[in-house]
Amino acid sequence: MALRHLLVPAALVAALHPAAQAHGRGPSTPEERAHVLKLAADADKDPLAAMAAEGRWFDKWVDEVPDIMFGGEAPARWCEGAAKGDLRKVLRFQYQLSGIAYQIEHQLLEPKTLEHKLAIHQAALEGVLRAYETLRSKAPENRSEKMEEALALRAKGELPAFVKSLFAARR
Results as ranks from 00 to 15, higher is better:
145 E>W: 09
127 G>S: 01
129 L>E: 11
16 L>I: 08
118 L>R: 06
38 K>M: 14
11 A>T: 12
137 S>H: 09
3 L>Y: 06
119 A>K: 09
163 V>H: 09
126 E>Q: 07
138 K>N: 13
112 K>P: 00
48 L>G: 02
120 I>N: 10
84 K>T: 09
109 L>R: 10
171 R>F: 01
23 H>Y: 12
146 K>Y: 13
104 I>C: 00
41 A>T: 13
20 A>M: 07
29 T>N: 12
4 R>I: 14
120 I>F: 00
121 H>S: 03
114 L>R: 09
69 M>W: 08
165 S>E: 10
74 A>R: 07
153 L>N: 00
10 A>W: 05
58 F>T: 15
5 H>V: 10
144 S>T: 04
48 L>I: 03
51 M>S: 11
109 L>P: 01
51 M>E: 12
144 S>M: 11
106 H>R: 12
125 L>E: 03
61 W>M: 11
102 Y>C: 01
85 G>I: 01
104 I>V: 14
82 A>D: 08
168 A>R: 11
81 G>A: 08
3 L>A: 10
148 E>F: 04
53 A>R: 15
110 E>W: 14
162 F>W: 10
83 A>E: 07
81 G>M: 04
115 E>A: 15
127 G>A: 03
6 L>D: 06
134 T>A: 08
23 H>Q: 13
57 W>F: 02
72 G>E: 12
95 Y>S: 02
104 I>F: 03
11 A>G: 12
53 A>D: 14
1 M>V: 12
113 T>M: 04
168 A>K: 14
153 L>H: 02
76 A>L: 06
50 A>R: 00
154 R>I: 00
23 H>L: 15
16 L>A: 13
123 A>Q: 03
92 R>S: 15
71 G>Y: 10
137 S>V: 10
160 P>I: 00
55 G>S: 12
15 A>V: 02
136 R>P: 02
78 W>K: 01
4 R>P: 00
95 Y>A: 06
71 G>D: 08
102 Y>K: 07
118 L>E: 08
94 Q>M: 14
84 K>R: 12
57 W>S: 11
121 H>L: 04
49 A>S: 09
140 P>W: 07
39 L>G: 07
19 A>W: 01
128 V>M: 02
64 E>I: 01
59 D>A: 15
54 E>H: 14
114 L>N: 05
33 R>L: 15
87 L>D: 00
90 V>M: 07
30 P>Y: 08
81 G>Y: 04
157 G>P: 02
154 R>Q: 15
53 A>W: 12
52 A>F: 06
15 A>H: 06
5 H>N: 15
47 P>R: 01
77 R>M: 12
137 S>K: 09
8 V>F: 02
27 P>Y: 09
96 Q>P: 01
58 F>R: 14
146 K>L: 11
121 H>K: 01
159 L>D: 01
107 Q>T: 12
36 V>M: 13
123 A>N: 06
40 A>S: 10
54 E>A: 14
95 Y>W: 03
42 D>H: 13
56 R>F: 02
158 E>R: 13
78 W>D: 03
10 A>K: 05
7 L>Y: 05
128 V>F: 05
39 L>I: 11
83 A>C: 11
11 A>V: 14
60 K>M: 14
36 V>Q: 05
139 A>I: 07
35 H>P: 11
131 A>W: 03
150 A>N: 02
165 S>N: 09
112 K>H: 10
86 D>T: 04
56 R>S: 13
22 A>L: 10
155 A>K: 07
86 D>E: 15
19 A>H: 02
